[in-house]
Amino acid sequence: MFGLKSSSLFSDTKKLEREIDGFVDILSEVGLVFKSIVPTYLNHSANGKFDEMVEKVKEMESKADKITKEVEHTLYEETLIPDARSDVLRLLEHMDELIGMYQGNCYHFSIQKPHFPKEFHEDLIELTETVVNCVEALCLTVRSFFRDIKSVRDNGHKVTFYEKESDIKFSSLARRIFDSELPLDQKMHLRYFVEKIDRICDQAEDIADEVQIYAIKRSV
């Protein structure tokens, strides 16, 4: 009646809600896996478990891609949320990019096998944890955009907080790497990895800022 072709409006809506929730779950889970991947890599240097985890991230990334396409298709095909459709799709795309960044980091660890001396392990793990916390806060922000618009600002603020923390940890670690006695090529190589991990936070913050604008637009 409203533009839906076969199934009812409400059952389609519920299915789509589940898909979007599932997408955010994937982003959150990929982060949690990534949080374990870094210490696993550092402690056992590219053993079977690490490869298994990278494979898991790859699978989740494909699943997220599939959901993005399905949601995009349904939203346009059935003309749902006309006022917020483009915002929601852009949001999903940017979150998908975030999953891609996690995956990219995993691949780089797997292919380039950077050697982090023991003295940097703790800092690198801490940076990774902050980055994952930042993305977790983003997941909350996104969930609140869909359900509880009043909480978007509060959760968005947490993303900003973790992003600043991450910047501090990145700067400190990068400084320590360049102050060390390692050869310059290794210093550059390690800095590349640290920077790539920190960039996930920058992207998360950009998305959180976007969500806050979308929330203002969505206000009744």
């Binding site: 409006l9 409400f10 809506t13 519920k14 789509l16 809600e17 979007i20 749902l80 949320i81 917020a84 929601v88 955009f145 869909f146 359900r147 509880d148 618009i149 009043k150 969505r218 009744v220």
Partner: peptide, 14 residues
């Protein structure tokens, strides 16, 4: 009502 019920954007749309 909408703020209190915390309806999903899609449910609200329907």
């Amino acid at each position: 009502f909408i703020l209190k019920r915390k309806l999903h954007i899609l449910r609200l749309d329907a």
